[in-house]
Amino acid sequence: MPRREQPRIRCAGGIVHDAEGRLLLVRRGNPPGEGLWSLPGGRVEPGETDVAAVTREIAEETGLSVTVGRVAGTVLRPAAEGVYEIHDHLCQVESGTLRAGDDATDVRWATAAILATLDRESMLTEGLVAALRSWNCLPRS
């Protein structure tokens, strides 16, 4: 019997570094990854572009307005109803005040040391550090 491919759920995320080289992280308030730290992002809504989705998600989750750049990389993650296909874009902060909002319970700028601690304590979404490392997007401070 042929194996049926699982449906792909298109998602988009933002990789944002501040002037000090720290990485923007959000603590997820809802599944998947509830309670874990990750990049801001979410599902691309019907009729929405990846750029529009990243812009919207970052504003909703962090209070920041960004300019969205090129795709740094793509990851696949299991979902209850298929597979999340997440396209992570490099972004630059334009304005706003950092605050947790929408489905984020917390938000922070993470140094390399903070990211390493969160990784050791299993407080990051699965595969985040490996993906960031392979895309050369780890915190620079």
Rank of each mutant, 00 (worst) to 15 (best):
E121W: 06
G101N: 10
G96F: 06
G47W: 04
P32T: 10
R27D: 06
G101F: 09
G21S: 07
A80C: 05
N30Q: 14
R77G: 02
L23V: 03
E57R: 13
L39I: 13
R28V: 04
G42V: 07
E94L: 11
S65T: 13
R77A: 13
V26N: 11
A12H: 07
L25E: 02
A110M: 08
R8E: 15
T55M: 07
R56K: 10
R108T: 12
V51E: 15
G47Y: 03
E45G: 01
V66D: 03
H17N: 11
G33W: 03
W135Y: 12
R10Q: 15
D18Y: 09
R140M: 05
A72G: 06
R22C: 02
P2G: 11
L138D: 03
N30V: 14
R99I: 08
E34S: 13
G13D: 04
A130V: 09
A19T: 11
V26E: 09
E45C: 07
E126Y: 13
L36F: 04
V26L: 08
E121V: 05
A53P: 02
R28G: 00
A80K: 09
L64T: 10
S95M: 03
L115R: 03
G96P: 07
H17G: 04
N30R: 15
R133Y: 13
P32C: 08
G41W: 02
A104P: 07
R108Y: 05
C11K: 01
S134Y: 06
R10T: 14
E61G: 00
R28E: 03
M1T: 14
I86K: 03
T62P: 09
R108E: 11
I86L: 11
M123I: 02
D103E: 14
Q92N: 08
I9F: 00
A12N: 10
T125N: 10
G101C: 13
A19N: 11
L64C: 12
N136R: 14
M1Y: 03
V75K: 04
G42H: 01
A113F: 12
L90A: 13
E5C: 11
R10V: 11
S95Y: 05
T105N: 04
E48H: 13
G35F: 13
A59Q: 14
R43A: 06
A131M: 12
G127N: 10
S38H: 06
A100D: 07
A104N: 13
C137H: 10
E20K: 07
V93G: 02
